[in-house]
């Protein structure tokens, strides 16, 4: 690979590019490492008025707890403030949203990819407009009806709303994915006497998993990262992790327990790290899928 003529670079250019990359590496990774390290300190060290080096060495942590590291923030967040409940809610929401949106999305995306008519195309354009709308604009439409019909505050409500908000994106991803599966495959099954649904069931489903997994990852991320919908539509006891975390900022900052929020931030980020670690290839291919084809 490095023998390609076009790839040879003068040493100075190579050095400049490498230097830039090292800088970007620090910019991208350092904030996470800093927060991870600091989450095991006390507030006086993480937010040190005297000297920022305290956040690394932690003299106050030594004085207050007797050790260089403390789990106080985590204990306070997970046990005292019941962050585990929010984590459980997040798990329920994320799993349900991903499964339901994929089921709806594969059916819809398959139909859109196989329909030659105009309305299929316009449906995709409408979905694009829906995709562009900020979710919070829809939330103001939900509140009044949901209050009237007593739907507000429950997990299933948030789940179905997130599924709907997720649909435009899922449809786009899966349609472009299904277009890459040759039409001959399911059409020959139909020539052999399968109905359209049987062809989908026996021929398409076995080969669709790579695309579904990639789309599923993004559905997962959307549900996991959502703040606008979950913050406005869930009651306090049903809160998921992100709104719960935001509520730490409101209530506990005054009590001097901002470390709960720091611990919660690290806890929320950890699963995403693992996700990227295992599914890096799928995430990259998903990001580029729509783009490279143009």
């Amino acid at each position: 690979m490095s023998t390609r003529i076009a790839d040879r670079r003068p040493a100075a250019l190579q050095a400049a590019l490498t230097g830039f990359l090292v800088l970007w590496l620090v910019v991208a990774a350092f904030p996470f490492l800093w927060t991870l390290w600091g989450s095991f300190k006390v507030e006086g060290d993480f937010f040190s008025k005297a000297d920022w080096v305290n956040a690394l060495t932690g003299p106050l942590t030594q004085v207050e707890t007797g050790g260089a590291f403390t789990g106080q923030g985590y204990w306070g967040a997970w046990v005292q403030e019941e962050f585990w409940r929010a984590a459980l809610n997040t798990l329920i929401v994320v799993v349900c949203v991903t499964c339901i949106s994929l089921t709806f999305g594969t059916l819809g995306g398959y139909a859109l990819s196989r329909s030659p008519y105009r309305y299929a195309f316009w449906l995709l354009i409408v979905a694009l407009v829906f995709r562009a709308m900020p979710p919070v604009t829809l939330v103001s439409g939900y509140l009044l009806p949901f209050f009237q019909w007593n739907l507000w505050g429950h997990l299933p409500t948030a789940i179905i709303v997130l599924v709907a908000i997720n649909q435009p994106f899922t449809l786009w991803m899966l349609t472009s994915f299904f277009r890459n599966i040759p039409k001959d495959l399911d059409e020959s099954a139909m020539v052999d006497g399968c109905s359209r649904f049987q062809a989908f069931r026996h021929v398409i489903i076995p080969v669709m998993w790579p695309g579904v997994i990639t789309t599923g990852l993004f559905s997962f991320l959307l549900a996991y990262n959502d703040f606008a919908v979950t913050a406005m539509l869930l009651s306090t006891e049903n809160q998921t992790m992100v709104p719960k975390l935001a509520s730490f900022l409101g209530t506990t900052q005054t009590k001097g327990n901002v470390m709960f929020a720091v611990a919660a931030v690290v806890s929320t980020t950890a699963p995403l790290f693992v996700l990227v670690l295992f599914f890096q290839r799928q995430i990259v291919s998903g990001l580029t899928a729509g783009a490279v084809k143009g």
Partner: peptide
């Protein structure tokens, strides 16, 4: 007809929770 059945769940979700809320707004 087949298209309608395939797209139905997805379209229902979008109509109920995206199109109608826009109307409600």
């Amino acid at each position: 007809r087949t298209f309608l059945w395939f797209i139905l769940p997805s379209a229902t979700a979008m109509v109920l929770f995206i199109a109608l809320p826009i109307l409600s707004v």
